[in-house]
Structures are given as C-alpha cells and as structure tokens.
C-alpha cells in the first residue's frame, strides 16, 4: 500500500498518501520521541518533541512530524544538531513542570537536558492532552477535560461523569507521561462527596 518513497535518516522508506512523517518512520522502525501521539487519536502536535528537520538541499526546515504529511522525495533527518538542541530545550521546559516523570528523565538523559535549567514550577501536567483526547475520541465519555487557559490551564475530571465511568475504565492513567491524570482523578474523587 505504499504510494511513494521518501528518505528518512538516509534510508529509503515506503510511504502512503495521508500518512504523517511520524507514521512513516514508525512503520520503518525508526524511532522519533513523542509525548502526545497516540495511534487511536487524531494528531495533536502538542508536545513538539517529534520535531524533525527536512532537507531541501540549499535549505532545511524544521517541522513537527506527527502533523506533517509525508510527501514523495522528502529528505528527513530525525536527529541533527538543530533537532537535538530543540528537543533538549523542550525537555528542559517540560521538566520544570514535571521534574520527576520517568519518561521525561529518560529522554533528558538521551538529549543531555538539564532538569534544573529553568525554575521549577511543578504543575505535573505537561498538557499533552492524551487523557482528554482519549476520553473524548475513543471512549466518548468526556469525563476529563481542560479548564482555564494560559499558565492556569489544567486538566480536571467532571465528578458527575467520572463517578459513573472512570472506576471501570481508568484507561487514561497509563497514557499520562507524568502520572498526573491519575493524581487529578484521585484528588477529584477525594474532594467530591456525592
């Protein structure tokens, strides 16, 4: 079902129309780090960790591979000086919010990110939206969602719905890169008495 080929890290790989670079790479066994991607969900482009460099010969361009559509004859680099530098900064920014996330710590070690570079401001949520989107798109339950905006944006479970559906589901907990979804649920459960 491959419509054309493109090059990723110097390898010729098959790709189909409508696929994103991330999907093409995944099928070819080339790993690109990401926090907000999930096979069953619409592409989100939230964490920006899957950033890759496109080589057009004279110039290059940085794109987010989970939302960028594959095209014939693309020359993609999943690791390069620019890409690594950006991923390092993104990780450092995320670590300011979730300094003890195992997943982030592993990635930080790989990219040499310093977890104390930015002032620690643990909100634990990195706004990947996995729990919110999974609950809405896959489960259709809408038990968890975002509230507020900007620096105050956070996830919140809606007690009325969560009480009905979450106990038997909890499928969003393992998706969370920081375990905050679970924490938010437990907190909501403890605070709502109904």
């Amino acid at each position: 079902m491959s419509d054309f080929t493109m090059r990723i890290d110097g390898r010729e790989v098959p790709a189909a129309r409508g696929q994103t670079i991330l999907e093409v790479a995944g099928n070819a066994g080339i790993e690109i780090p990401t926090l907000c991607h999930h096979e069953q969900l619409e592409p989100h482009g939230g964490c920006r960790l899957c950033i890759v460099e496109l080589d057009f010969g004279e110039w290059t361009r940085l794109v987010v591979s989970c939302v960028y559509q594959a095209k014939p004859d693309l020359e993609v680099r999943t690791r390069s000086g620019k890409v690594d530098k950006l991923r390092k900064i993104i990780l450092e920014l995320l670590l300011a919010h979730a300094p003890d996330s195992e997943l982030l710590k592993e990635l930080a070690a790989e990219y040499g990110a310093n977890r104390t570079r930015f002032e620690q401001e643990p909100s634990f949520c990195v706004h990947c939206g996995l729990c919110v989107r999974y609950c809405a798109e896959v489960k259709g339950a809408h038990a968890v969602g975002f509230i507020d905006r900007g620096v105050r944006k956070e996830i919140a479970f809606l007690p009325e719905i969560a009480k009905e559906v979450c106990e038997d589901c909890k499928e969003c907990f393992p998706l969370c890169p920081t375990s905050y979804a679970q924490a938010a649920y437990v907190l909501m459960d403890a605070l709502s008495t109904r």
Partner: peptide, 12 residues
C-alpha cells in the same frame, strides 16, 4: 454538547 466542553469554554 459534552458538559466538559462547556466547562472548558466557560473557564476559558
């Protein structure tokens, strides 16, 4: 419209 979505908008 899911209540969660309304809550998102109402707090946004």
């Amino acid at each position: 419209v899911p209540l969660m979505r309304i809550q998102h908008i109402a707090t946004f």
